[in-house]
Every structure is written in C-alpha cells, then in structure tokens.
Simulated assay, not measured.
Amino acid sequence: MKLFKAGAAAAVSVVLALTATACGGSSDKASDSGASGGAKKDKIVIGIKFDQPGLGLKNPDGKFTGFDVDVATYVAKELGYQPNQIEFKQAVSAERENLIANGDVKLVVATYTINDKRKAKVDFAGPYFKAHQDMLVRADDTSITKAEDLNKKKLCSVTGSTSAQNIKTKLAPDADLREYPGYSECLTGLENKAVDALTTDNSILAGFAAQEKNKGKFKLVGLNLSDEPYGIGLKKGDKDLQTKVNAALKKMVEDGSWQKSVDANFGPAGYKAEPAPQITEGS
C-alpha cells in the first residue's frame, strides 16, 4: 500500500506540473511588459514595416533586416526576450493604431512619427530617430526641385501617411494625390511614370534608392519639408512599458549599438543621419 500511495502521489505531481505548464504560457495579447517574477514569456509580437529597405524589410529568405528591426530586437532583449522569441508582424501605416489598440502587437517600431493626433490613441516611447520629409523622383527628372513644382503633377504616398497630406494642404494644393497600399507600389508607379514623385521620410527614400536594383533610377530632391521624430508605439496608459522601452533606447545609444546600426543600414546609401534625439515621451 505504501508503494501504491507513493506511485499515486508521484503521478499527481506530474499531472499538476503539466497543468501549470499548460496554463503558464503567454498569449499574443498578454498585458505583461516583459519578463516578470523571474519567468520568461513565450514571445513578444512587434509591428514593423516589411517593405522598407534599410529600416524594416522582409527578405525572400524570411529574415528581417533594417534599423527599425535592430531597434526592436535590442528593446525586446532589454524586456527579457531573445531574438527567437520575437514575432514580427506587418504594420502598414494605416493599421498601426488598430494593431496596438486591439492587442495584436505589444510594440510598433515602424517609422512611426510621433504627433498629437496619434498620441490621442496610443502612447509612444522615444523618439529614437529623427528624419525629414523629402521627395524621390526619377533620376532624369529636372522639373521637380521644390514642393510647389508638384502642382498639376501626380504625387504618391502610402495610405495613412502624413507626408502627402503635408504637401497637399500646405505646399502644393493642386497636386494630384495618389495613395497606394505600400511604398513598393509607389516606387513601381514612379518607375513606370504612373506618378511623378514619391514623398515620405528621407530615410525611407534613401533606403529604396540605394537598393541594387534601383541604383541610378531615382534621386532625392533634397528637401527638409518636415521633422519626423520616430517613436515606438505602445498601448495608451501603459506607463510601465513606456519607461522600460525608454530605458532600453537610452542604453542602445550609450553602448554604441544605435550608431553601429545607423552606419550599417544607412551608410551604404550615403545618407547622413542626425545624432540620436533626446527622449521626450513619458518625461
């Protein structure tokens, strides 16, 4: 009987252990801010762009590269996640707020400019980078040298981006605005002469222009039409996560990882990034 009881007790212990393991996994929409109580979470879901070379690009082999990818990976590490615990989810411009609000992602690191309209819906950490709005045109086009030249011309940007609206409302009200789902579609339209210019942040445009397949086809006009401070989007009111992400960004700058990533991702395009900006969100 003693042997039987000992065996039964062991079996119960195994069942309880398995039950605890099954209940202990985290879901994509968990509200934790990282590792807590010494326990590692299964994964963290981070929204990035999939079509921005130099910033957030999904390569044919399924791997992700770019400055935003490096920032996301570094921040995730500081929150307690290894690279194999990160799930990258595509965050197109028009869906970034919804992805955060619905809990589909924990963070959005996707050339996400901090502005008051967006801050009404989500919170930000950062900024971690400062870009400026510019325009990309065909290399042989000499007719567009300033924003006003876009009047009566076809201007492309992505749905949900603030860049085209900035030109349309302030600088070239007669521009024929064409909004496409992604930058790749705009670039194809530019090459095929379906549109005359593509506008967005200079960092994004430089990444496209520097691609091997695009070398010699396009050029940056060289305008600073706006300041674009990139922040990391997160759920509104999650001050604990905001504080942790800000701390991670500061550490990335201090230990040289930020500059190393800037050089690796933007250097080949000859794009000169500004120094890391001061963190203002959450302060």
Rank of each mutant, 00 (worst) to 15 (best):
F129R: 07
K41I: 00
L79E: 01
L241F: 12
E254I: 07
G222N: 13
A197Q: 03
Q82F: 07
L225R: 06
S157V: 00
V195A: 12
S33F: 00
L55V: 04
L223R: 02
V122I: 15
L99D: 02
Q211N: 10
R178V: 15
E274V: 10
G37T: 07
Q211A: 08
A206I: 02
S93K: 09
K193W: 02
T200C: 12
Y81C: 06
A248M: 07
K146V: 06
S203Q: 09
T162R: 04
A264V: 04
N265D: 14
V195G: 00
A210F: 09
K49C: 05
L190G: 03
L198Y: 08
D51R: 07
I114H: 01
N224D: 15
L79R: 01
V137M: 03
D68L: 05
K152D: 15
P268N: 03
K106T: 14
E212R: 08
A22R: 13
E78S: 09
Q82N: 12
D42F: 13
A91Q: 09
A76D: 01
S161R: 02
I48N: 11
K117D: 13
N84M: 11
F64V: 08
V253M: 09
S27P: 00
I86Y: 12
A9V: 13
Q278V: 14
Q211V: 06
M252R: 03
L177F: 09
D263V: 09
K236L: 05
I144R: 03
D134G: 11
N246L: 02
T73E: 07
A76R: 00
A30Q: 10
V105D: 02
A10P: 04
F218C: 05
Q52N: 13
A269S: 14
E212C: 02
G34R: 00
D123M: 09
V195Q: 04
S203W: 03
Q165K: 15
F88N: 05
R118T: 13
K236P: 01
L16I: 07
K29C: 12
E95C: 06
V109I: 14
E179W: 01
G282A: 07
K154A: 02
T243W: 00
S261A: 14
V158D: 01
L155G: 02
L205A: 05
K77F: 04
A209V: 01
E148W: 02
P127N: 06
